[in-house]
Structure formats: structure tokens, C-alpha cells
């Protein structure tokens, strides 16, 4: 049986076919995948926050979109991915609770999605698909055999992007 590798919150994992990388229960967090179809290697990053500008030096870099992505990219390249073939998919970024006067932190999901897209663009990585927003949780997984990115929800069904 192929490996199922779990990616925790504020963490990332890289691997190669036939493994699958999975991250459970994303709310405002985002699961960013990178994949190289030819080399069949990829990674999954589970970020919590858009950027590290307010962070302390001791903070875990995988928590933020801007510091987590370069780290994962480096590891995926070391596994043999080609920089030019890599494509990205993202999912998550929900706002779980609706408040009339939602503060910035309540909207962190939307800000996470924006940041992820901006950073992918800056790094010249093509964003192939996304499933972001809404008010529901997602479990995401990327199959490193074919790059299929599956998004499961409790009552909004399951989709592949």
C-alpha cells in the first residue's frame, strides 16, 4: 500500500510517488501543494498566516506563506523536481465563524489565500487550481502518482482540483 504522509498544522512534507500527502481539518489555514508531473515528486505545506513580517525570529517558518513556501520549494527541488515544471494548487482559507464586525483576524482565511497566490506569482510558479473561501473546513490530500488534489468536506461533498 502507498504511504499516507500526514502534514500537521504549520508544517510541510515532501515526497515522491506512490505516496500521498494529507492534511486534516483546515479552516482559515491553506494547504499549498507543489507537484512535478514528470518527476512525480511534490510537497504539501499547511500555512496558518499570510506573512512573517510581525513574526519573532524564533517562530516556526512553516507557519507563514512567505517563509514556508521557499522552504518547501527547496526540498522539492532536492528530491529532483524541475523548477519550470512545478505547478501549485491551493485549498482552504475559510472564515469559520461569521461575525457582524469581523476583525482582521476573522478574515485571516481570505488574507491567507491572497498571500499564497501573491507569493506563488513572485516565485513564478503556476497556480493550476484553487478551492478557497466559504465557511467550512477542508481536509486536503495530494496524490504524488498523478498530482490529483482532493478536497474533502463534512457536508459540501468531495472534489478533485
Amino acid at each position: 500500500m502507498a504511504d499516507l504522509i500526514r502534514v500537521g498544522m504549520a508544517d510541510y512534507k515532501v515526497g515522491r510517488a506512490p505516496s500521498t500527502l494529507i492534511s486534516y481539518g483546515l479552516g482559515s489555514c491553506i494547504g499549498i501543494s507543489l507537484y512535478d508531473t514528470q518527476a512525480k515528486v511534490g510537497g504539501l505545506l499547511h500555512i496558518m498566516l499570510p506573512d512573517s513580517t510581525q513574526a519573532r525570529p524564533t517562530d516556526n517558518p512553516a507557519k507563514f506563506a512567505d517563509t514556508g513556501l521557499p522552504l518547501m520549494l527547496k526540498d522539492v527541488l532536492e528530491l529532483g523536481a524541475s523548477r519550470t515544471r512545478l505547478v501549485a494548487k491551493i485549498a482552504g482559507g475559510a472564515q469559520m465563524f461569521a461575525f457582524a464586525n469581523a476583525t482582521d483576524i476573522m478574515r485571516v482565511g481570505a488574507r491567507n489565500a491572497e498571500a499564497a497566490k501573491k507569493i506563488l506569482k513572485e516565485m513564478n510558479i503556476r497556480l493550476l487550481a484553487e478551492d478557497t473561501g466559504g465557511n467550512y473546513g477542508r481536509t486536503v490530500q495530494i496524490n504524488l502518482n498523478d498530482g490529483v488534489y482532493k478536497v474533502k468536506t463534512i457536508d459540501k461533498g468531495e472534489k478533485e482540483i
Binding site: 498544522m9 481539518g25 479552516g27 489555514c29 498566516l49 524564533t58 469559520m96 481536509t139
Partner: peptide, 22 residues
């Protein structure tokens, strides 16, 4: 109120704390 995955629901608190530490 929300009925969903525990991780997703906890996100609302954890993201806030995550700005200040781990």
C-alpha cells in the same frame, strides 16, 4: 456557532495566537 472539523474550528483561535508565538 459552527459544526465542522475540529481543526478547522480551532483555526479561529490558533491563527490569532500564531501571530504572537507558537
Amino acid at each position: 456557532l459552527a459544526m465542522d472539523m475540529a481543526g478547522a474550528i480551532l483555526n479561529v483561535v490558533l491563527a490569532q495566537l500564531g501571530q504572537m508565538g507558537d
